Simulated scan of single mutants.
Amino acid sequence: MSQIKIKKFYLNEETQILFNDGENYIVGLTATGKTTLFNLIQFILGIRKNFNGIINNSQKPYITCEFTNNRLIKISRDFNSNEVVFTEGNTIKTVKVNSSELNEVYSSFMNPSTEHYKRSALDILNFSFLTAIDLGKSYFYKKKPLKSILGYNEEYLESIENDINKLKSGLEIEKQSLNLLDIYIENVRASLLSINGVVENPDQIIGILEMELTKVKKTYESNYELLQRSKEIYDHELTLYDEFFQGRILELQPYFQEVLNLIMPSFESKLNNLTLSDLINNKNINMNNTSMGEKIIIYFALHLTLCRSLSNEKFQNGGSGLLVTDELFIFNDNYSLKRIRNKINEVTKVGELQYIGFTQDSMQIPKENIVFSLPQNKGGSIFG
């Protein structure tokens, strides 16, 4: 999967943000517009259907993203529009949100390494955004994109299963028609025998009906064979997806464990060796004695593990290479926060990730990584 890099955000002449390829922070006090800006970026990209923020802005906001082979794509969207506009040079393409075409457009930009990821571009992009709000009971609304990022596309498999069920229903109707036609022919045959001599060429009539019956039988048999082949294909696809999915989990587990143990050394004893598989499948998890700060570390480790853009001869993942968080670490102490930022710095320096963090805590953040400061007076906002 090609890495996505957000290069520029444009709201108006006064508010333009340039991002570097590694670590970026947007800082500001509470109620200065951080979450509004976070949501607006998702809205422009088309992964957020609606935007409820109040903005006094007459211009169309846009984002410039860099994809494979240094392709710079300008992505824009009107505040009240359900369409995303992609501009590359003189080429302009307008696509509706929540559409398969939007997924295809991002897939063409992100250049998936395998067929497993081609149907999952939007899910993968959606997974790149995380807030503390996501970490309640509603977190597993991200379960579908979470599986997609590991190459398991449930919607695709469900679509095959639905097609099989439709074919099966059609066959049942054909079988009923076949039985009714068979009964009808027998009734006609009996009627012709009872009025022997009244109707000319009764055998010819029966012959014509039996020819029709033979045609219906052949159609039924052909569709039955199609159903059996479809079932075999589905079972084969399901096996391939399961193997691919489980393989990705096994390959990523050591890194997930490493991140957790680095940031939260007490992790092993506290959660009884929670695995990536448990977390993804939401099984064997008991976080009743886990603080909000510890939950944030666990899910941050999950997103960091899956969002990195990896590509080598042995292993390619479906990570976007982008992670954007909004006030994610407000419940963490300075000790954990320092370790988290050290890990972010490490991953961004080797080029596996572009990180954009929205935060009110600018302490210990190098000035060169602060790409934008929102108004420092509480209640002020760039959005008017």
Results as ranks from 00 to 15, higher is better:
18 L>R: 09
350 V>A: 03
132 A>T: 13
101 E>Q: 07
345 N>F: 05
291 S>V: 13
192 L>H: 11
8 K>D: 12
35 T>E: 10
356 I>V: 14
167 L>G: 13
171 L>N: 11
291 S>W: 00
270 K>L: 09
259 V>G: 11
159 S>I: 09
98 N>S: 07
203 D>V: 01
343 K>R: 10
70 N>A: 09
61 P>T: 03
13 E>S: 15
24 N>D: 11
27 V>M: 02
304 L>C: 07
208 I>A: 10
192 L>S: 09
221 E>F: 01
100 S>Y: 08
172 E>K: 13
43 F>W: 05
149 I>T: 12
134 D>S: 01
175 K>W: 04
340 I>C: 00
357 G>W: 07
120 S>Y: 03
89 G>H: 03
106 Y>H: 06
215 K>W: 11
322 L>R: 13
311 S>Q: 10
261 N>F: 11
310 L>K: 14
315 F>W: 08
134 D>Q: 03
315 F>G: 06
168 K>F: 07
345 N>Y: 07
88 E>L: 09
62 Y>Q: 09
28 G>M: 02
93 K>D: 10
72 L>Y: 07
201 N>W: 06
72 L>T: 05
123 D>N: 10
258 E>C: 14
221 E>S: 05
236 H>M: 13
334 N>L: 08
369 N>P: 04
327 E>P: 01
75 I>K: 03
166 K>I: 10
106 Y>S: 06
234 Y>G: 02
3 Q>C: 09
65 C>G: 07
254 P>W: 12
33 G>E: 10
305 T>Q: 05
15 T>K: 01
316 Q>H: 15
348 T>F: 00
144 K>Y: 04
263 I>V: 15
244 F>V: 12
198 V>E: 03
55 I>T: 12
334 N>V: 14
196 N>K: 15
322 L>Q: 14
40 L>W: 02
321 G>V: 08
88 E>W: 08
190 A>P: 02
309 S>W: 01
248 R>A: 06
189 R>Y: 10
261 N>D: 15
350 V>R: 06
324 V>M: 01
182 D>I: 04
40 L>K: 01
267 F>C: 06
346 E>G: 06
122 L>H: 02
26 I>H: 11
284 N>P: 02
266 S>W: 12
61 P>Y: 00
260 L>D: 10
225 E>R: 10
332 N>R: 00
246 Q>C: 09
61 P>I: 01
204 Q>E: 14
265 P>Q: 15
